[in-house]
Computed example of a mutant assay.
Amino acid sequence: MGASWVTTREAVASGTLRPGYKCAPEVAARFDALLTYVSLQLGRKLGEDVTPALSRKELADPALRSQSLVQSMSTQGTLQGAINIQNAVGPLVVTTDLRAGVVTCHVDIAAPRDGRATTRVNWLLRQLRHAPDSTRVEAFVMHGRGAGTAELLRAVRDQPALLIEDPKKDLRSFRIALGSPIGSKRGRGRGSFIDSVENAINTFYGDIVQDLRAWTAAPPRLREVPETSDERPSLTSTALSSQDGAEADEIPQQPEDGHLLPPDVPDERWDTDSAGRPSPSLAGSRPGTPDPSI
C-alpha cells in the first residue's frame, strides 16, 4: 500500500486526516490498484471478465476518482470501490472502514415483482443456503427513503417476517453484506491489508454472489380452448324434391281426359270387374267405345 500507508491509516483512525493531506492521494491510488489486481486474480479463477466498476465521469477524469476517495477517508474514514463480474446479479461493492478495522462486501439484488412480502423473503433465503449466519440482510420497500430493515441471516432463517416492517408495502430490493477484519500491515502475507481485502472478496463471491440469480417473471401460458366436434350438423333440405316421398299420396290423380278429380272420389269410367276387364255398364262411357244399343 506504499510508504504512506501507516501514517495515513493512523490519521484516519484518529480523525485528523484532512482533504489536503499530501499522502492521501497516494493511498487512494494504491487502493484502486489493489481492486484492479483482485479483479484480475478473480477473473483468472472464474475464466470470465472481472473489472473495476467506475462511473463515466471517473473514467473521463481519473483525478475525480482520487478526490472522491480522499474525501471519504477524511469524512467517513472509509475507502470504497466496486468490481463488475460478468453475469453476476450486480456489482460487488467493497468498503474498508479504516476506523473500525472492518472490510465489508455487499451486493444488491432486486426483489421479485409478485407475491407477498414473506414470499419474496423466502425466495432470497433459498439462494443463501451456503451463506454464513453472520451475513447481514437488508430489505428496502417501494418508494421508501432512508435505511430499510436489517437483520443477521441466522435470525431471518428462523423468522423471515423480521425483514417485513409493513406487510402492506411491497419489497423493492435486498442488500446482502458480509464483513471481516482487515489487516494493518502494508505488505503482503497474513495480517496484511492487501490479503485481507482479497480474501474478503473471494469469500463473499464464493459463499454468496455465485449462488444468486435475478428474478424473472414466468412466461405467459396459452389459454385452454374448448374442444369442438368435427361432425358437421345435419341440414334439412327445403327443396320440393325432398318432400316427394312425404306428399306423394296427397297429389291428386289426373285422368287422361284432363279432368281433375278429388283424391277420394273414384273414377267410375275406369272401373273394372273382378277379372280386371272393363265393366260392361261402364264400357260405353269410355271414350271411343261404341254403344251396343245402337
Rank of each mutant, 00 (worst) to 15 (best):
A155G: 03
P91F: 09
S237M: 09
A214R: 08
E151P: 07
R190N: 09
R129E: 09
M1C: 00
L59E: 04
L178S: 11
R136Q: 14
S196A: 14
V89L: 05
A63W: 10
L128V: 03
A155K: 08
N87K: 13
C23Q: 05
D230Y: 13
W5H: 15
D207I: 01
S192Q: 12
G284R: 15
A177Y: 12
E250I: 01
V70S: 02
R129P: 10
E198S: 15
M73Y: 11
S237C: 09
L235S: 11
P220V: 05
L42C: 07
A218C: 03
R221C: 05
D170S: 11
A200G: 06
R30V: 01
F204P: 00
T135F: 08
E10Y: 06
E58N: 02
R136I: 05
G2W: 06
E198T: 15
W123D: 02
T75Q: 10
P252I: 10
I176V: 15
T7H: 10
P167H: 14
V12M: 15
D61L: 07
D97H: 13
A53R: 09
V197W: 13
R44W: 01
L54N: 10
I294Y: 11
Q254I: 15
V156Y: 00
E224I: 09
S4I: 04
L153W: 06
T8N: 12
D257F: 09
G284K: 15
R157A: 12
T118A: 11
R188D: 15
L178D: 07
G77W: 15
K168S: 12
P226E: 05
A82T: 02
A246M: 01
P181D: 08
S55L: 00
G2L: 02
R65V: 08
E227N: 05
S279D: 02
Q254D: 06
F174G: 09
A155V: 07
A53G: 11
D170G: 04
T289K: 07
N202W: 01
T135K: 04
R120K: 15
G187C: 11
L128E: 01
D61S: 10
A88V: 08
R116Q: 15
D230L: 13
R186I: 07
N122Q: 15
V50F: 06
E58K: 01
P62V: 01
L17P: 00
R9Q: 04
V137G: 10
E138V: 09
V70E: 08
W270H: 03
E250A: 13
A147N: 14
P220W: 05
T236A: 12
V38E: 08
T78C: 12
L282Y: 11
G20M: 10
V141L: 12
V141R: 12
T104D: 11
A28H: 01
G148L: 14
E268R: 13
L79C: 04
G183I: 03
G191A: 12
E247C: 09
A283C: 08
D291A: 06
I164C: 02
H259P: 01
T238F: 07
P278D: 07
N84F: 00
S241T: 10
A24C: 04
L128M: 08
V209W: 02
A11L: 15
Q127F: 00
G101P: 00
P287N: 00
H259G: 03
